[in-house]
Design a protein around this nucleic acid. Structure first.
Length: 443
RNA sequence: CGGGGUAUAGCGCAGUCCGGUAGCGCAGUAGUUUUGGGAACUACAGGUCGCAGGUUCGAAUCCUGCUGCCCCGACCA
């Protein structure tokens, strides 16, 4: 993408409403625009990040056997009366009426609707297990939205729903999502720690929050230090192997980890001091197993092997990609701006032409831009006639992992500069060597 | 929902106390000189001063009401 033809409205100064670093940087980097309290437009650069996050989430959901569909944002009130949540949900649910005075709502979550879809088609235990998910906008009318897209009213959520014939199957479904979540966050370069959680209005018996550690995190968390060295299971893990999947869950839940709401101070303090970690955290995922809470009232039943009808065992599993975009910045930034992990970076490389109009510089840039793009490397080419300093500042702000700096001085000796945004390390290389280096990095 | 702020150009702000033709910096446009870590100069353009009433010869400024937004708290992916 040529920056001269892109839409990336960066701000030199920080809008005063933005308090936390991710919000400030998202506004400054031209990723977001607030339209009203807790409601944001995603500008092109922000959307690219959101799409990268979604792609990883989707791959890992699919790998774990979940199947994507797409449910609407607007739902009929009657569906929610069946589960009893129309009255329970309170003012956080945005309720609206259509032109015929029918009561509708903007979905805050989709348990009811997915259960309605399920019961419309599935009759037999032979069709189980089943896990359906979508990535769709949700609306929760928070009393006080804040922190940009970290706590917005409209937000994007991946929500998966599992259906099983019995509790054992449900446990396996839960474990599969548990593993998928560990992999999802690790692929984004985040250290996410599962913590036992309160189930809140979703209800149910078993629940974990996935918390990433970031010193600007919103809540206080406590965990065993060994978690910091744990690695997510490999892509090759066999999700159908109940024991293997359960082993991962057991391992990741064996040590102490809790948010402040669930914190058991005596238990935590019983650990040797050197093994305790108190930190700030951000919730990026939440999984629940809630049995027949919805299937029973909504009559989502199947015939079991014995021919008897039983309500299905359900679970739901959420990740907030829009929140993740902010959380990623909270965990990856410095004074100059964002530092994107490669997997979610809006572009891989920022190519800075330090002297637009200089024939040799233009030619070198055009050549690199064309070849890298052709090779599948995503390049944002700053071809604007601007001063070098401004270009450096912009590239640091938007945080692309690699910066290719091409100017007449370096070219005079046949070299260009390759800078690593995270380490700040710079290297002078021939254009050819830089090209090969970037190809290798994207392999 | 309780408490506290704030609203003036795209962004950041001054002006309000003490009423008298709306200003600064950045960003934008044109030009000149520049060009390896957010350039300088010149010129230009950009505002129903959140909204509605009121007081006054005259209101960004004083009074009344309303609204938006932000922060702290309680609540939450």
């Amino acid at each position: 993408m040529r920056l001269s033809r892109y839409f990336m409205p960066i701000l030199r100064e920080t809008p005063k409403e933005a308090e936390i670093v991710s919000h400030r940087l998202m506004l400054r980097a031209g990723m977001l625009r607030q339209e009203t309290a807790g409601i944001y437009a995603w500008l092109p650069l922000g959307l690219r990040v959101l799409n990268k996050i979604n792609a990883i989430v989707r791959e890992e959901q699919n790998r774990a056997g979940a199947i994507e569909l797409l449910m609407p944002t607007i739902q009929p009130a009657d569906l929610w009366r069946e589960s009893g949540r129309y009255d329970d949900y309170g003012k956080e649910m945005l309720r609206i009426k259509d032109r015929h005075e029918r009561e509708m709502l903007f979905g805050p979550t989709n348990e009811e609707m997915v259960t309605e879809i399920f019961r419309g088609y599935v009759r037999s235990y032979k069709d189980l297990p089943l896990n359906l998910y979508h990535i769709q906008w949700k609306f929760r009318d928070e009393v006080r939205p804040r922190f940009g897209v970290m706590r917005s009213r409209e937000f994007l959520m991946k929500d998966a729903y599992s259906f099983d014939i019995d509790a054992e199957g449900a446990k396996h479904s839960y474990a599969k999502m548990f593993v998928a979540y560990l992999r999802t966050f690790e692929r984004m370069g985040l250290k996410a720690i599962p913590m036992r959680a309160d189930t809140g209005p979703i209800g149910g018996s078993l629940s974990h929050e996935f918390i990433i550690l970031a010193n600007t995190g919103e809540s206080e968390v406590f965990c065993h230090k060994d978690f910091l060295d744990y690695e997510a299971p490999p892509a090759e893990i066999n999700f159908d192997d109940r024991a293997a999947v359960q082993d991962v869950v057991d391992r990741w839940t064996a040590l102490y980890a809790a948010t402040s709401e669930m914190h058991d101070a005596p238990a935590f303090e019983a650990l040797p001091e050197a093994e305790r970690v108190s930190a700030r955290g951000i919730e990026v995922g939440h999984i629940f197993s809630f049995g027949t809470k919805y299937s029973e009232p909504m009559r989502a039943v199947v015939n079991g092997p014995d021919g008897k009808e039983v309500p299905v065992q359900m679970g739901s599993y959420g990740i907030g990609p829009s929140r993740l975009a902010a959380a990623l910045i909270e965990a990856n930034h410095d004074e100059a701006g964002i530092i994107w992990p490669r997997a979610v970076a809006p572009f891989h490389v920022g190519l800075a032409n330090l002297k637009v109009g200089d024939a040799a510089t233009d030619a070198a840039c055009e050549d690199l831009y064309a070849r890298l793009t052709k090779a599948g490397v995503e390049v944002l080419y700053d071809d604007r006639d601007d001063r070098p300093g401004a270009k450096f500042a912009t590239l640091d702000l938007i945080g692309l992992p690699h910066q290719l700096i091409v100017g007449p001085k370096g070219l005079a000796s046949g070299e260009i500069e390759l800078k690593d945004r995270r380490t700040g390390a710079r290297e002078s290389l021939t254009p050819e060597a830089a090209f090969n280096r970037l190809l290798a990095a994207s392999a």
